[in-house]
Write a protein that binds this DNA or RNA. Structure first.
Length: 275
DNA sequence: GCCCAGGCGTCCC
DNA sequence: GGGACGCATGGG
């Protein structure tokens, strides 16, 4: 086990923030997470966060995954300075305090958000979990109570690419099976190209949107934000559109041009869904 | 039965 | 470029 103390971290809000689909509440203040080929449990008591893994694994895997090098308090302070007159945004930030933008695996993020279209978060989670248990490699990790539990990693691009459409449909993804297959093939053929990873938001987003069948503007923005950590990417889904219509009279708020618009978007998304 | 869910491709203008 | 429409599936 390894513990840290930090503000601006709330595992409950992160788990329900809709950016990741494999963090789940186990009981009370204990959550499980599967990412980057690892399983971990996380317990939060106030500002004390305990991970069911070694310090080495924390430093290598979970510290970057939860973006713990970045000072979110500093970003929020800047947002308050610049957009303090935006009442809705200030309320959303206060409510969502503790949410972070995770540094998730690119391929997992791509496939997960291809699945996400016209689905509820609950339904996305079920599809992703089924896909992992059917086609993902087995991994082992430690819990708080036992030193060994078996889980499944997210499937590799090779694994998904090799599947028939009907096999993908066994995960409950419906018509998105064709999109998943196309995205996996794209990744194997061209995705590991430096173009996508070593370029800025605008270029990366355009590549994703124009080259991958089934990826439009919204999913390209989700992948840019959650899979490439371009913090200016600001996905607009039905919930964000609702906010724009109800609180901004249909016009885009000023903060959406900001370099951390994606983080602010996440606060707003979480706020409007829970309130 | 109906409507909705972290949308997109296609068709048509 | 923008608007209408169909799309698989599960939950309320």
């Amino acid at each position: 086990m390894y513990s840290i103390r930090t503000n601006d971290f709330d595992i409950r809000k992160i788990a329900y923030s809709g950016q990741c689909f494999r963090i789940n509440r186990l009981r009370g203040n204990v959550y499980s997470a599967v990412a980057m080929g690892h399983y971990v449990e996380i317990k939060q008591d106030g500002d004390e966060i305990t991970f069911s893994c070694s310090q080495e694994e924390f430093e290598k895997i979970w510290k970057p995954y939860f973006d713990l090098e970045l000072d979110y308090g500093d970003i929020v302070a800047k947002a308050v300075t610049q957009f303090g007159d935006d009442k809705f945004l200030m309320d959303a930030i206060e409510y969502g305090r503790g949410i972070r933008i995770l540094r998730q695996d690119f391929f997992e993020t791509l496939i997960s958000f291809v699945i996400s279209q016209r689905k509820s978060i609950r339904s996305i989670k079920r599809c992703v979990e089924t896909m992992c248990s059917l086609y993902g490699e087995r991994i082992a990790g430690a819990t708080f109570d036992f030193d060994y539990v078996v889980e499944h990693d997210f499937p590799t691009p090779e694994a998904l690419c090799a599947l028939e459409i009907d096999e993908l449909k066994e995960c409950g993804v419906g018509y998105r099976a064709e999109y998943i297959s196309a995205a996996a093939r794209w990744y194997l053929d061209r995705g590991d190209d430096y173009r996508v990873f070593s370029t800025g938001y605008q270029t990366a987003s355009n590549i994703l949107r124009s080259e991958i069948y089934g990826v439009g503007i919204k999913i390209a923005n989700c992948v840019s934000l959650f899979g490439l950590h371009h913090m200016c990417a600001c996905p607009i889904d039905v919930w964000m559109q609702r906010i724009i219509d109800q609180y901004y009279q249909g016009g885009l708020p000023k903060w959406m041009d900001w370099e951390y618009a994606g983080l602010l978007q996440q606060y707003c998304f979480f706020y409007i869904r829970e309130c």
